[in-house]
Design a binder for these strands. Structure first.
Lengths: 240, 240
DNA sequence: ATAACTTAGTGTTGTTTTTACACTTTAATC
DNA sequence: GATTAAAGTGTAAAAACAACACTAAGTTAT
């Protein structure tokens, strides 16, 4: 199977660690003759001839993390003629045997997961979680893509219950509140927030509590995609 | 300037005529030897080498309608390997001198305007407004693209005041209500709806009334993009 | 000129949702 | 057994929502 040389997908992999929203970035190091630099990129790849875009995004995510069945959504496409014209990017493409003047369409996807779902040593690639508000200058046009992904995420999380994708399967209400506070950069009143989520039938309380915490252990919940599918009415006006 | 042969944009041009939501479609007629068919397509075109996607979408819209400064938004990208493999589509591409096995990425945009902004005879192309709920089988994968555009439109119009883009500059509150009812396929109580829009500071009442209508003439309003920009808080929880 | 027609425009009441706000509980740790 | 840390809980006032019916102001038909 052959790679298409002008269509690629880039995945913005968001992770939440209980405290901050992070993005999974990959080292890009080039050292060749007098040229030498290191920086970070999102993960992406060309699609195969005959591969649908969604499949390519799944594959890219899998190749980096070993995970399948992760929330993944196409959010925007980037194809500006000058998107790959920074000096280091051209060197990198040349080193990689690619034509730096070939215009490349990159279809942006974002993925949501809990940071601890990823084993960073997977396939020995040099990969790291970086808090989204501490991301420096990235390779290619990846700062632009990241900003755009964040915007889409914020927009979407208000109206659909995707925040749970950033949490472990079993989670506490405080964790849910934290996810929404971090992503929307706001604070909610604890009691009011809990009253609101109490109305969501698809948040299922489990017969289980937190363990090993140095305070009153919290009730654990899980998110039921099934129940949600049947009660899509409160999709509108979700949080906020 | 040369056209890129694998990147295209397709524009879903929505129009409202006071009664229904329509989409602007273009005749595709091929008659050559024993092959002969007529159907309809969205409007689209390849982008020029060196042309950004947004510019290409503006251009495609302009070439069909002669209009500039129209609300236009990228909503999804289509690149399925089988998207152009229907028999008629292959014949059409061949007739057009294009390689039907070339994989083409199509970036979808939707435009919003009032149907009477468009002069259908523009450039003599065979163009027609079709109510979205009466659209038959379109060329290529354009039914898919249209459905996807409708979904994006419905999603967006709930949360951001873009309904006004489908109305003339000066409009009545009943027209606003109708737009939202048609697009969201629902009905609102007139008094409650008006109470809600009365809270929107960016709806500016004019010193002007409807003329020549066979009933009490309605107050005219306009939408102020400026005021809206300054009061984005009620972006959330807009209509519904 | 008047009647008929058509859509514009308006207020109240009961119900639900939102907001603001502080103390007790339960576990682990020292 | 005291300390620490987060979990969990209720109420009252304000705002928003939902349901509902008549009058006003033009045009058209007679």
């Amino acid at each position: 199977m052959e790679l298409n040389n002008y269509i690629s997908v880039d995945c913005v992999i968001f992770g939440f660690d209980g405290e901050r929203l992070k993005v999974l970035l990959v080292d890009r190091t080039l050292s060749e003759g007098s040229t030498s630099f290191t920086d970070l990129t999102l993960t992406g790849n060309h699609v195969y001839e005959n591969e649908p875009l969604d499949a390519a995004a799944d594959r890219v995510l899998f190749e980096l993390t070993g995970l399948t069945n992760i929330y993944l959504e196409q959010f925007k496409t980037f194809a500006h003629p000058d998107r790959l014209t920074k000096e280091n990017d051209i060197k990198w493409l040349q080193h990689d045997g690619r034509d730096p003047f070939q215009r490349i369409v990159s279809v942006g996807y974002f993925a949501l997961l809990a940071t601890d779902q990823v084993t960073l040593e997977w396939k020995g690639r040099n990969v790291q979680w970086v808090p989204v508000d501490e991301v420096g200058e990235l390779a290619f046009d990846h700062n632009l893509i990241l900003e755009s992904a964040l915007l889409s995420l914020r927009n979407k999380i208000i109206h659909e219950p995707i925040g749970f994708e950033l949490l472990p399967q079993k989670f506490t209400l405080s964790q849910v509140q934290k996810v929404y506070e971090i992503i929307l950069d706001t604070e909610f009143d604890k009691r009011n927030f809990r009253k609101k989520v109490a109305r969501m039938k698809y948040l299922i309380p489990l017969d289980e509590k937190q363990k090993g915490v140095a305070h009153k252990p919290a009730q654990l919940y899980m998110f039921s995609r099934d129940v949600y599918g049947n009660t899509k009415k409160d999709l509108l006006n979700f949080i906020v």
